[in-house]
Amino acid sequence: MPQATPLLRLLNVLLVPGTRTRKDPDAVYERLLQEVQRGRVPLGADDLAALDGLRLLLADHAANPDLSAFGWMSTQQQIRERLDNRAVVRDIQANHPEVRDEPVTAPVFVVGLPRTGTTVTYNLIARSPGNRGPKLWEMTNLGLPRPAAERERLIAQARKRFATVAKLSPAWAHLHPLIADSEEEDFMLRAHTEMYATWGPAPRYLDYVADADLTDDFLFLRDALQVMAAGEAPERWVLKHPMDLWRLPEILRAFPDARFVWTHRAPGSAVASGCSMAEATHTMYIKPGRIDLDRIGREWLGISAGGVERATRLREQLPDDAVIDVVYDDLLADPATVLRGVFDRLDLTWGATDDANLAKALDRTGHRPHVYSLERYGLDETQVAEAFRSYQIPASSLT
């Protein structure tokens, strides 16, 4: 079981005075909004409305008696960064209106539950010549392209920041290494995702986001990509986030020419992995001894199964060529054939760089397997099979 590190325990003691603000999360949210808009063009009513679900997210975590002092500080920081993204982009658009004309052509969204092969698929497509995915350092320092020296400085700062995260939670660093100059998930640019429930219980926010139309979120993602690569637009953007899987119509409203690569695997492993990820994050956000593993199991089974059911239903509304299926077992058995097939379907040319990228991705030297089980979270394969009864894994991605 992941344990709080000495550094995390020390921070939780030092940060206790700051927890007094939990009594009025609305005031905290308003303060964060004021901070990110200071010196910038004020956010309009539509932007404020699109962001307002984060107010509910903050209130949910503030109301959790098991939230640690570090958890409260980190919750505020994460929400501030999402608000800041919006303020930065709107200010740049006001001062550089030409960025709205930057091309974002036929982006590829790699979608699929955790541990279904999304990362290797995403990295291979994003790192192919002419393509690109948003990097961690630039999503946490959103702005126009920087000169090389400033870029290196910001990357170095990001490395230090995320090295600290690894010290706070080695389990999280093992599950999902945060690499400053590597591609990361698009929710770090957008406002909303069920992934925030990995911090701890957020029942009202999860109800909100389940019923929300996130078209605005993806329209803003487009705006952010235009800012990040102004004057340097790639031939094709490549994005990834598990919860994008059940947002296909909203994505298509923002990116009408988007393509999707959907990775598939027996859902038991995906659910157990998602639970393990939530537990590792809870270790940073929740007081020691207060993590409810059975609640994590129930919640992530519901999020995962409900999302896949929705995605399956929505897929029927899409053109046949909008979604490319990748079966995890095929990817494991013959990655070169599967990925070359994906490239063909996307009208991408596989070359020597892609061979080298694949060889690097398959090099497991020093890799420590991620061990997880359904039983740890009060689940079993029968429960998972029942929850995913409408989900059918495609026969093969090798044909």
Score class of each variant (00 low, 15 high):
Glu250Ala: 08
His174Ser: 11
His61Pro: 13
Asp344Pro: 07
Leu398Lys: 12
Ala352Val: 09
Val209Arg: 10
Asp354Cys: 01
Gln226Met: 04
Glu98Thr: 15
Thr312Asn: 14
Ser269His: 14
His241Leu: 10
Val271Cys: 01
Trp137Asp: 14
Asp257Tyr: 06
Asn12Thr: 06
Val227Thr: 11
Gly297His: 05
Glu185Gln: 14
Gln76Ser: 08
Gly200Ser: 04
Pro234Ile: 06
Lys287Leu: 04
Leu113Lys: 00
Leu301Ala: 06
Gly143Gln: 01
Asp101Cys: 01
Asp347Ser: 15
Gly112Asn: 02
Ala258Phe: 07
Thr312Ala: 13
Val227Met: 02
Val99Asn: 05
Leu124Trp: 05
Pro97Ala: 10
Leu379Glu: 00
Arg315Met: 03
Leu358Trp: 01
Met195Ile: 11
Ala210Leu: 07
Val36Asp: 11
Asp347Gly: 08
Gln77Ala: 15
Ala387Asn: 11
Gly274His: 11
Pro256Ser: 13
Leu33His: 12
Val108Leu: 10
Asp355Trp: 05
Ala305Tyr: 00
Gly378Asp: 08
Leu33Phe: 01
Ala87Met: 05
Ala171Glu: 06
Leu144Trp: 05
Phe220His: 13
Thr140Ile: 09
Arg127Asp: 11
Met243Gln: 15
His370Arg: 10
Pro65Gln: 10
Ala333Gln: 12
Met228Glu: 11
Arg310Thr: 14
Arg55Ile: 03
Thr365Ser: 15
Leu178Cys: 09
His61Ile: 03
Leu219Cys: 10
Pro114Cys: 02
Pro319Met: 01
Ser276Glu: 07
Leu206Ala: 09
Pro2Lys: 10
Ala148Gln: 05
Ala356Leu: 03
Glu375Leu: 11
Arg90Gly: 05
Ser373Gly: 15
Pro129His: 10
Gly133Phe: 00
Ala27Cys: 00
Val238Arg: 07
Ala59Lys: 01
Asn357Arg: 05
Glu194Asp: 13
Gly112Ser: 02
Glu81Ser: 13
Leu67Val: 07
Ile92Cys: 11
Leu221Asp: 08
Ala197Gly: 05
Phe343Trp: 04
Trp137Ala: 14
Pro369Trp: 04
Pro147Gly: 15
Tyr372Phe: 06
